[in-house]
């Protein structure tokens, strides 16, 4: 079975290590990802908050591409893309009016049936925890992980249908399978401010600080994420946060796929561990993982 892979814009730029680690992990698990040809940007938040039709048509056009190219399942690692794909599919399926407009805008049929999975769902629902447990060769013993779900992955829960919106467990379950220990903490579903990072940087610095503080207070060595926006705000902005609040901020932020990759024994530099702005190597070495 092969899956239509929708990397999204970030995974080809600032989040390239998410792309690399996703592909390497899937390779190792024999999950065949095939990039959808000529995919386009989902429009993210700017599209649906500017023009509703555009906000639905852009992601839906990708589902149409996937269907045309023979995929019955689309896998997206980016939480924002996943959210927009699911939302567009939901809106089109639940409103004949919307379906008609989207059909007109995209110039293509809307009666398509494509499953949309987030990459972590692929591991949970398609590959399965029991098989996963067997293939992990290098347990991440002793590593305490704060799993950060953020907002777009889970909400609106009626549409995302991924996990409980208040107390999600999927990332924690995956983390625990690797032998690492997921810590309970309060901010796992808070929002980091997402795309406000550029126009309203100060807000995002405040929000991200609270999230990192909460993870640190819970005793986490690293934060795991499943969204390039979360990663951008938490990892790339830590130096700015430290400056703003006059403290040292150096909590590594890893993609969940990187954790899984490490547990599968994949070379850390191939997983893109070198490309984070907060260097994760010291922590991982201290824990005897590297």
């Amino acid at each position: 079975m092969n899956y239509g892979y929708f990397p999204g814009c970030s995974l080809h730029a600032t989040a390239k290590e998410f792309n690399d680690s996703t592909k390497l992990v899937c390779d190792k698990l024999d999950l065949e990802l095939k990039e959808i040809d000529k995919w386009i940007c989902c429009g993210a938040t700017p599209a649906h908050t500017t023009n509703q039709e555009l906000g639905i048509a852009l992601p839906f056009a990708n589902l149409q591409l996937a269907a045309d190219q023979g995929f019955d399942t689309v896998v997206a690692p980016c939480a924002a893309c996943f959210n927009r794909l699911r939302s567009a599919d939901f809106e089109v399926k639940h409103s004949g009016y919307t379906a008609e407009r989207v059909g007109y805008i995209t110039g293509s049929r809307t009666d398509i049936n494509v499953r949309i999975l987030h990459i972590i769902q692929l591991f949970r629902d398609e590959y399965g925890y029991s098989r996963l447990k067997e293939v992990f060769s290098k347990p991440l013993k002793g590593l305490k992980v704060a799993n950060y779900y953020g907002c777009l992955l889970l909400r609106p829960s009626l549409v995302m249908k991924l996990d409980d919106p208040e107390n999600p467990v999927i990332m924690d379950e995956l983390t625990n399978l690797t032998g690492a220990e997921s810590v309970p903490w309060a901010f796992k579903t808070e929002c980091c401010g997402a795309s406000l990072a550029i126009p309203e940087t100060e807000i995002v610095l405040d929000l991200s600080k609270k999230i990192i503080d909460s993870a640190k207070n819970a005793g986490a060595d690293v934060i795991a994420v499943a969204c390039p926006l979360c990663h951008a705000n938490l990892d790339m902005r830590q130096k700015q946060i430290g400056k703003k609040f006059g403290a040292d901020y150096s909590t590594p932020v890893l993609y969940i796929t990187q954790l899984l990759g490490l547990a599968l024994g994949i070379d850390p530099s191939k997983l893109g561990l070198d490309s984070h702005l907060v260097d994760p190597y010291p922590v991982l070495r201290a824990k005897n993982i590297l």
Partner: peptide, 26 residues
């Protein structure tokens, strides 16, 4: 860190402009 692409990525998808224009119109 090699995280910034210097050149814009091209989707090669010719339908995009139409999606924008028609969305605007609708």
């Amino acid at each position: 860190k090699g995280k910034i692409a210097i050149k814009p990525a091209m989707s090669g998808n010719k339908n995009v402009k139409q999606i924008f224009d028609k969305s605007e119109a609708v």
